[in-house]
Design a protein around this nucleic acid. Structure first.
Lengths: 145, 145
DNA sequence: ATAGACTGTAACACTATTTGTTACGCTATA
DNA sequence: TATAGCGTAACAAATAGTGTTACAGTCTAT
């Protein structure tokens, strides 16, 4: 079941930015993510629109957080990247007037809504600051690999 | 967030098969799904492997259920189509030794596991017989569209 | 002012996945 | 033995995500 890897990648970057504290260019972020600056700008633009980061052009410009990691949850990042919907029930649309198809779709939709609520709750529980702390602790313990 | 539409389509077909009670050819099933017989065989093969349907070749052959709709849940169909995993956490793999990436992935994985458990529970609660009943009721009530 | 270091964005190529299609072999039955 | 069915490989088409190039706009140091 293929999904969008941007959430994990952006969390990764934001935590680094929070720990470093300063401003990062698209170029440097691209290196963190093994990708290139345009992809970074494209994705960071969603975060900016949602108010998580800001960008400044011109010499000395780059990206920075608008608030500390303690005030950013995984859910915030998710919302910024994909809007309200986290999980989308994969419904069928072969015979929209068929009562069987409708009944099946309705049941699936309810199930996915429950799962989405769970995911939402879990996402909201985790701040990026927590992730940073876990990373620092494990790095200190020498689990760097 | 795009996902696999086979689950909904197969539920649709299985309920029809259960309500009709007999045997269906790949050709007829393909018509129900607005697709073609090869795609049907490909997908039905997974259900057969899991023991939900059986196929018979030769003249008069086709597909039939191995047990009544009351004994098939959405989870059964899901398992047949995709195995154990329902939701896959979309993790990042840019710097596998980076403790920040690891910590972020770990948190995401836990969140998705919770959601997967919810989905599993919901899927197991619903039998195809229920879906058939809902469909029959709504058809009787004239909500056929 | 102007050069340089940035972001913003359009356009296009590449890749992987799903779905659809054609073709042909095998099997059971009338 | 002709026919109606499944089994499967091989290939085409559509879609989505990602990567890349190119160029315009913007800010700052000098």
């Amino acid at each position: 079941m293929r999904q969008d890897g941007r959430l994990a990648r952006m969390i990764h970057v934001l935590v680094h930015m929070g720990l470093l504290g300063g401003r990062e260019t698209s170029e440097r972020i691209a290196q963190m993510l093994n990708t290139n600056p345009v992809v970074v700008r494209r994705t960071m633009a969603s975060l900016r629109q949602y108010g998580i980061v800001k960008s400044e052009g011109g010499r000395g410009g780059g990206w920075s957080l608008t608030r500390p990691l303690t005030e950013i949850t995984i859910l915030d990042v998710q919302r910024a990247l994909q809007g309200e919907t986290i999980l989308d029930a994969p419904l069928s649309n072969d015979h929209p007037s068929c009562p069987v198809e409708r009944a099946a779709n309705a049941k699936l939709q309810r199930a996915f809504q429950s799962a989405e609520q769970t995911l939402e709750r879990e996402f909201q529980k985790v701040t990026l600051a927590e992730i940073g702390e876990i990373a620092m602790a494990s790095a200190k313990a020498g689990k760097t690999g």
